[in-house]
Amino acid sequence: MGEAIVITSGKGGVGKTTTTANLGTGLALYGQKKVVMVDADIGLRNLDVVMGLENRIVYDLVDVANGVCRLKQALIKDKRFENLYLMPAAQTKDKTAITPEQMKKLCDDLKKDFDYILIDCPAGIERGFKNAIAGADMAIIVTTPEVSAVRDADRIVGLLEASGFEEPKLVINRIRPDMVKRGDMMDIDDMIDILAIELLGVVPEDEKIVVSTNRGEPAVADETSKAGKAYRNMVARLQGQDVPLMPMENIEPSFMDKLRMFFGLKARTR
């Protein structure tokens, strides 16, 4: 039996789809796991575009839920990465086209064949969100270092806790170490202090993400990308490995850190 993980955020545009694409590809590529990514954003599907698989869609999630086709017919196999599949959303319908119960059944069916089911949740807290979390066992919350995104993430954690999710994990996306250092951006500790959930990883702002998204090639496979490295670390952590947060460039050790190092203590890793 596989594990279904929903990737959610509340706020839009913080990187749910990018995170789903990269973690999914990473788990298949480096973890040698059988992975399916489910796009739950019916009516505003993006995951297929980010993965570069748009032109191969024949059937979608709604067709499977309504019995128009069999589950396997809607799954798109990614030819570049072995073990990686996509379940696309419908673009011509809306969130009410499926129910949470149908979504749960779909996830249960997928769990029989796959190790990981990554569900890309739409923004918001309404029907689309309820559909997306219905079949999930675990949640990953994506936020950016902005007050509004953290506020929405906090709301989502509250809703997830009310739905019985015990330990959601946090991904902090698009952090800019230089701005954090100047005090112009919330730092990681501020966000963890408010959200009080376990940190899965921190992704630095990286131009390569824009390029890879437009080309439909996940950055996780790009060895030269900083963001890609962050995603690879997260893939390892998801599989139970203990990987320290990677040091971000432009962050020099502070005086206290230097002092700690001088006395042979571990400097705080960022």
Partner: peptide, 25 residues
């Protein structure tokens, strides 16, 4: 004994004691 998060409202006739944080929102 928990964090009260954004969007959550606690209404009570009496005294409220929270062992945890009450977050913005």
């Amino acid at each position: 004994k928990r964090t009260v998060r954004s969007g959550q409202k606690i209404s009570y006739k009496g005294t409220v004691v929270i062992l945890g944080d009450a977050n913005p929102g």
